[in-house]
Write a protein that binds this DNA or RNA. Structure first.
Length: 802
DNA sequence: TTGGGGCTTCAG
DNA sequence: TGAAGCCCCAAC
């Protein structure tokens, strides 16, 4: 029997299965999806069995045997094995990378070189002394002891052997379990125990009072008050027995709970739910775009749809952007489905993630909630996949394999013949466009679930504020609003839009942002050269001293931090209690959750933060939302800038007035006429969608075109540019004339880690040759360019063009 | 990616 | 002549 194995080596010529002989005694247990230890060249590595066959094309002399089977059960199902193949091909990644992302990080192998003594009698005395009674030592320890030269000699003489040890990063957690005999045995043991052994008598009596078959050793010690030595004495006498039992790590119980009861649905919610249930009953793959305004109760639709598939004995995956994986959200799912839910979020340790993964793998839970990678949850009978806030760019992994969770979800749904729900108040243009073309089924929720009115939105022109002499960060309207809420003991959320910090130049008098003469995109400020550059066409110009439009000298780099905002806020309302939430204050584990919890408890009046506060907050006392600088994200060198701004403004506005109290939103901007800001006033998505689609069509950007970016980097500027040229011309030659190839241009971050970066942009509507051509380019690169120090990467459908 | 073999270079 | 450094190649 032959096993085809993908080995744990990420390299171009190795990105294919290798054949290994299966020893006869393992033939009955060998199957695809198992991890094995195999010899590979002179070393030993972990590999994944992807197929079993009876014969190999290779000379039998070349085939080595599998050394060890690591798992008892396959860790990857046939479905996930097939998915990894598809994903590797689609994203142009190594298959091993595609396999590894599907498993928890704790299962990734760690290699350690160890030295094993073969002929101890031939060792020097000093070396033997160092070893003590150890038979093997890690090379690391030997290096620390400066013994590497000796080891080398011994190894050449065959006195010691160097070997690779493969270790699991995280092991299953085990506890010491004490097995307690029945009362009769305990009583007879008590009689036999000498009364001098007071503590033993005490323990036996305690055990008699607390009858149980088995108990954790630590629990016995804690509750009975005896020490470990007493326990050991009884173990030695074989009165009690012990064993190591595998347990799951205890997760923090959610602090908030949902009532657990399904809520009454509105008509709109009900018809959306029915459509999903129908698709589910018909065992049909169908992708639904659930477009519901903020507060329209999308989550309730998810919950009831999940309930429907669970009743049919199937499983569900819910993906949420990491940031909205707040206790509020998870508590709601746990409240509804209790122990059937596994939550996978970044706050868990790798061991905890591993435990959650095993709970899914063993079929102990039916619902998995998590960020991007939860889309690979090892369910075998999926009935529903949900992506909440589907427009979020965090669903795209920006390192190899560069997959999009949406595509993976649809692939899995297709495999299991089940529906996918993409939910958002502000869908990505891609998804909405597909919904209008009936690729996806559009479901719309236009009313808020609790009948509240949408908050009233006011856009404040900061240029006017400046003219009237207000140089502070807060407009008169916002400052008044804040004071008012403080008096009424209501809560305020202030969003500081920090994206694209200091990267563009803006005139404080007329709001002009310096743009590229060739492209409809703002120029990016480059400190190193004191110039402004366009990352799309390569245009470059010096930083102007005065505004090119109004000749004002109030022209400067735009951007301001949360810390400064907090100081200014203090000057404005010293009595207010402010919680600041940004990368600085949320870097420690659980900080994010704690700050939100405090805010929810009313321990602060104002929540000031960056993007991370825009989502998922659902607190009834928030009645004012202020956006301090709406335009910061508008002038990024990114064709999605307007879309992202509109999404952010809509999301954050949705935080206000979610309960009884009416909400109000104040958006401060230097560019009130911009359609992304103008339209966020009414929070109407469709008009924005139409305008933005028009613009995208004119400029030839997604979703009208697909985009692939090929990036070239090299330590030497000239070589980077040279290879970028070569690569670009290769693509031009090979791809059809329908495709638009732009570049090479300097990347937005033109030097990163001392490497110069250039890129080439491929835009296409239909290009069947794309993947094969990219594969060819990759082969070129790997077989010759890479040797010259070039690094090339391919990113299909990037979230942003850097 | 990694380890080994082979080749060159340099000092002794 | 041996050690060290570098390049190249195969890996089942």
């Amino acid at each position: 029997m032959i096993a085809e194995v993908i080995v744990d080596v990420a390299a171009y010529p190795i990105d294919r299965p290798f054949d290994y002989a299966v020893p006869a005694e393992w033939e009955s247990v060998m199957e695809p999806g198992l991890r094995v230890k195999v010899p590979f060249g002179p070393r030993k590595v972990v590999g994944y069995v992807t197929a079993i066959k009876m014969h190999s094309e290779l000379d039998s002399g070349k085939i080595k045997p599998v050394l060890e089977i690591i798992d008892l059960e396959p860790v990857l199902s046939t479905e996930l094995l097939a998915l990894s193949k598809w994903m590797a091909a689609e994203t142009i990644a190594y298959e091993i990378d595609a396999l590894q992302v599907m498993l928890p990080a704790a299962m990734r192998a760690k290699y350690e070189k160890i030295m094993r003594v073969v002929k101890p009698e031939l060792l020097d005395d000093s070396f033997r002394e160092f070893l003590g009674n150890r038979e093997q030592v890690s090379l690391k320890a030997l290096q620390d002891a400066h013994l590497l030269n000796e080891v080398k000699k011994y190894s050449e003489q065959g006195i010691v052997q160097i070997d690779t040890a493969i270790q699991q990063k995280t092991k299953m957690k085990k506890v010491r379990m004490i097995h307690i005999p029945d009362t009769a045995h305990l009583e007879s043991a008590l009689e036999e125990t000498h009364s001098n052994a007071k503590k033993q008598v005490e323990l036996l009596q305690w055990l008699l009072l607390h009858p149980s078959k088995s108990m954790e050793a630590s629990e016995i010690m804690n509750k009975s008050g005896v020490k470990a030595n007493v326990l050991k004495a009884l173990l030695d006498k074989q009165v009690i027995e012990q064993s190591q039992v595998e347990v799951y790590r205890e997760l923090d119980a959610p602090k908030m709970r949902d009532s657990g009861k399904p809520e009454q649905l509105t008509d709109e919610q009900q018809s959306a739910l029915s459509a999903i249930e129908q698709a589910s009953d018909k065992k049909k793959q169908e992708t639904f775009l659930l477009h519901g305004i903020t507060g329209s109760g999308k989550t309730e639709v998810y919950l009831q749809a999940i309930d429907h598939v669970l009743k049919k004995g199937k499983e569900a995956i819910v993906l949420v952007p990491e940031i909205s994986l707040t206790p509020q959200m998870t508590a709601r799912f746990k409240g509804r489905f209790g122990e059937l839910v596994a939550v996978l979020h970044s706050g868990l340790s790798s061991g905890e993630k591993y435990d959650e993964w095993r709970r899914i793998h063993r079929g102990e839970v039916k619902v998995a909630i998590g960020a991007r990678s939860a889309v690979f949850a090892p369910f075998t009978n999926l009935g529903l996949l949900i992506l909440d806030e589907e427009h979020e760019s965090t669903y795209k992994q920006e390192e190899s394999p560069r997959y999009h969770a949406r595509d993976v979800a649809i692939w899995r749904a297709d495999y299991h013949r089940c529906p996918v729900i993409l939910g958002s108040a502000t869908p990505s243009l891609e998804s909405y466009a597909r919904a209008t073309k009936d690729v996806y089924t559009l479901l719309t929720l236009t009313k808020r679930a609790k009948q509240q009115a949408l908050p009233e939105v006011q856009v404040v022109d900061m240029r006017e504020e400046l003219k009237t002499g207000n140089r502070s960060m807060f407009s008169v309207a916002l400052a008044d609003g804040i004071r008012q809420r403080l008096e009424r003991k209501e809560q305020i959320v202030l969003l500081l839009n920090k994206r694209g910090f200091s990267s563009f130049v803006l005139c404080r008098d007329c709001g002009t942002v310096v743009e590229c003469p060739n492209c409809d995109i703002s120029l990016t400020y480059h400190r190193s050269s004191e110039s402004l550059k366009c990352h799309y066409c390569g245009h470059e110009q010096p930083v102007p001293i005065e505004c090119p439009e109004c000749a004002s000298e109030h022209i400067r780099f735009f951007g301001t931090g949360t810390q400064k905002a907090q100081e200014e806020l203090y000057k404005l309302v010293p009595e207010a209690r402010v919680i600041r939430m940004d990368v600085d204050t949320t870097s420690t584990k659980g900080a994010h959750e704690r700050l939100l919890h405090d805010f929810g408890e009313g321990k602060a009046d104002i929540l000031l933060g960056t993007q991370m506060i825009a989502k998922g907050l659902d607190f009834p006392r928030i009645t004012l939302v202020g956006v301090l600088a709406a335009d910061t994200s508008l002038h990024l060198a990114d064709f999605r800038a307007a879309e992202k701004t509109f999404q952010l403004l809509t999301q954050v506005s949705g935080r206000a007035g979610r309960d009884q109290l009416p909400g109000e939103v104040v958006i401060q901007t230097y560019d009130p006429e911009h359609y992304a800001i103008e339209l966020s006033k009414t929070q109407e998505y469709v008009p924005f969608y139409e305008l933005e689609m028009d613009r995208r069509r004119q400029l030839g950007y997604p979703p009208y075109y697909f985009v692939t970016v090929v990036q070239f980097s090299h330590e030497d500027v000239l070589k980077a540019a040279d290879y970028a040229h070569k690569g670009t011309s290769f693509l031009m030659e090979q791809l059809s004339s329908e495709s638009v190839i732009i570049g090479p241009t300097a990347a937005a971050i033109s030097r990163l880690n001392n490497r110069y970066r250039y890129q080439c942009l491929v835009k296409y509507k239909q290009e069947p040759a794309l993947v094969p051509v990219l594969q060819k380019l990759l082969k070129h690169y790997k077989t010759s360019w890479a040797k010259d120090g070039l690094v090339m990467s391919i990113n299909r459908e990037p979230t942003a063009i850097f």
